[in-house]
Amino acid sequence: MVKKTVFVVAAILLGAFVIGAVDGAHPFGDPGAAPMDDYFLANALNDISAENIVTAIVFDYRGFDTIGEAAVLFTALTAVATLLREGRRKP
């Protein structure tokens, strides 16, 4: 019984947090974070002399994303090599 009460209270708390988070989220369809875009456009060329701002964002400002992409590719290669390696026993 105590366990059930704890679970119910936890569920209500979690629901409240989720509703609050959804309510506080950025409105859908509204292009957000315009100050960041303006910062890239205004400062990328002068600060790091990036003629191509897309590449500057991909490899510098948001390089962490690019690490993720490289990791995805590496994981795909590892999976393929694991599944299809030679010397596999016949079923």
Partner: peptide
């Protein structure tokens, strides 16, 4: 002048070349 952006581009290019060819 972009510094690491150009170098990282080449490095990622090498990585993608090897990975896709191996796949």
């Amino acid at each position: 002048g972009v510094g690491t952006v150009a170098l990282m581009s080449v490095a990622v290019g090498l990585e993608v070349t090897g990975a896709l060819s191996l796949i």
